[in-house]
């Protein structure tokens, strides 16, 4: 006797609660965004002239009002992503391996490293705004004890990037560490035993057991870390205000400013789509690189 039958619509009904929200708040606005990007769109103005692909073309026309800020923003986002992702992928792994070993106070330290992640960007931003302040910040005061002269953590390069990357790593490394930790606990202990019997030392065990065992976790961590870094916004708004010049003004800041301060929503959505396209391509490349290679 088979399981009692169910109607064709049953799976969809189970999916419905999620699907409704997904359609209403993700797919709907995304499609609407495409429509907006084809217009000169200001929700407060009665005339929203259709401009075709002009908003996109402008982004590739160095003489337009939108292209320079946008590509500067993309460059800033690119620099931040390149600078932060390696740290956010490597450091949490080391941390997770340490926290995975048995030692007194392990639970305490796991909580400590995760704790900053619980704080909102406003808290982190404000706190580091004070810590990194060039003239009155505690960090420069501390370095001053060793005779280091004032460093422009919020308004000089490359210090501004170092500051932003540093605070972001401190803030979010706990999250990646927890994911690695879960991955580590999924690697069967027998594999380590077997490796040990074969005479592998700790380092060899790490490279030949731990790293391959974490491959699926890597794909996930690298992908979400790239996306999170590419969406960097709050830290730069609060700590550097995009300075010096516009060098730490990220793509998302440019999009926000264009859409919500200058009210050029058509241009802003066109920028968003271009950014999304870039991120999609990077994610695909990422999946290709980490794809399980057939031995």
């Amino acid at each position: 006797m088979s399981v009692r039958g169910y109607g064709r619509s049953t799976p969809y009904l189970f999916l419905a609660p999620y699907l409704v929200l997904f359609l209403a708040f993700v797919v709907g606005p995304a499609l609407f965004g495409i429509w907006m990007s084809l217009h000169d769109w200001d929700f407060q103005l009665p005339g929203k002239p259709f401009v075709g692909l002009q908003n996109y073309k402008d982004l590739f026309d160095p003489l337009s009002a939108t292209s320079l800020p946008f590509w500067h923003g993309m460059r800033a986002t690119g620099i931040f992503t390149l600078a932060s992702v390696p740290f956010l992928v490597a450091l949490p792994l080391g941390l997770a391996v340490l926290l995975n070993r048995a030692f007194p106070g392990r639970t305490f330290f796991r909580a400590v490293y995760f704790a900053p992640y619980v704080l909102g960007v406003a808290v982190i931003g404000l706190m580091f705004r004070y810590i990194l302040d060039t003239n009155f910040g505690i960090l420069n005061a501390f370095l001053g004890l060793f005779g280091v002269s004032e460093i422009g953590w919020t308004n000089d390069q490359p210090w501004a990037w170092i500051g932003l990357v540093g605070l972001t790593v401190w803030w979010t490394l706990g999250f990646n560490a927890v994911i690695y930790l879960a991955g580590l606990q999924d690697i069967p202990a027998e594999q380590y035993e077997a490796a040990e019997l074969d005479g592998a030392n700790r380092w060899q065990q790490f490279w030949n057991v731990t790293v391959p065992g974490l491959r699926p976790v890597f794909v996930f961590v690298v992908t979400i870390t790239i996306l999170a870094s590419a969406n960097m916004f709050g830290q730069a708004v609060l700590v550097t205000q995009g300075a010096p010049g516009d060098s730490t003004t990220t793509a998302i800041m440019v999009i926000t400013d264009t859409g919500l301060s200058q009210f050029r929503m058509g241009s802003a959505t066109a920028m968003s789509y271009l950014l999304a396209l870039c991120l999609a391509i990077i994610s695909l490349v990422n999946f290709a690189i980490f794809r399980e290679r057939k031995s």
Binding site: D133, T134, N135, F136, G137, E150, G152, T154, N155, D156
Partner: peptide, 16 residues
């Protein structure tokens, strides 16, 4: 003036 004056540091410097 110092180089790289931070936001509001000019006003704080006067107070301090």
């Amino acid at each position: 003036s110092p180089k790289n004056v931070a936001q509001d540091a000019d006003a704080i410097a006067l107070q301090n």
